Simulated scan of single mutants.
Amino acid sequence: MSAQSDERDGIAAPAAPHPAAGDTAETERELGSRAPAFIKASKPLHLSWQVGVFAVGLAVVAAGIAMLVLPGPGWLVIFGGMAIWATEFVWAQLVLRWTRRKVAEAAQKALDPEVRRRNIILTVVGLVIIAALVAVYLWRFGLSLPWNVDE
């Protein structure tokens, strides 16, 4: 059951407690449609609004999927399409909340000194291996520039 149907049935959803002024915890937005009140008031108008939001979001997500193989910021555009859907659909709001939470966790984990030290060590080891492979290749085959190749 959605928040909209609760409002239409006359059942008030319990209000979320407001955080204290000094509370630094991130407050989550209320789930449900963010359409203007005059659109929510008419069921046919609200349904057509939802269809329009879905179509625009689908077009943006499809463009993002195309950009995964074509030049362009594919994932950024896909998340933009999800944000468009999240203005109207609860499932998209929940997906974005989950994604935001996972990104914040990954950022915190990346800032952990032990993880940073491990990543630096792995990067240095990888660069040393690549440098050794390049050195072996150059020693074995030499450097032949494209404009100096004899045909």
Rank of each mutant, 00 (worst) to 15 (best):
S2T: 15
S5W: 08
D6G: 06
R8M: 05
G10Q: 00
A12I: 08
A13N: 15
P14Y: 05
P14H: 10
A16F: 03
T24V: 09
E26S: 07
E28Y: 04
R29V: 02
E30P: 00
G32L: 02
A35G: 10
P36T: 06
K40R: 14
S42T: 12
L45V: 15
H46E: 10
L47K: 08
S48W: 14
F54H: 01
G57L: 02
V60A: 06
V61S: 01
L68H: 08
P71E: 13
P71Q: 08
I78A: 03
I78E: 01
G80H: 07
G80S: 12
A86E: 00
T87Q: 13
Q93G: 06
L94N: 11
L94G: 09
R97W: 05
R101G: 03
A104G: 00
A110C: 04
A110W: 07
D112T: 05
P113M: 04
E114F: 13
E114C: 00
E114S: 11
R116P: 01
R117I: 01
N119C: 01
L122C: 08
V124P: 02
V124F: 06
V125Q: 10
V125F: 05
V128Q: 03
A131H: 07
L133I: 09
V134P: 01
A135C: 04
A135L: 15
W139Q: 12
G142P: 02
L143H: 10
L145N: 06
W147C: 03
N148D: 15
E151L: 15
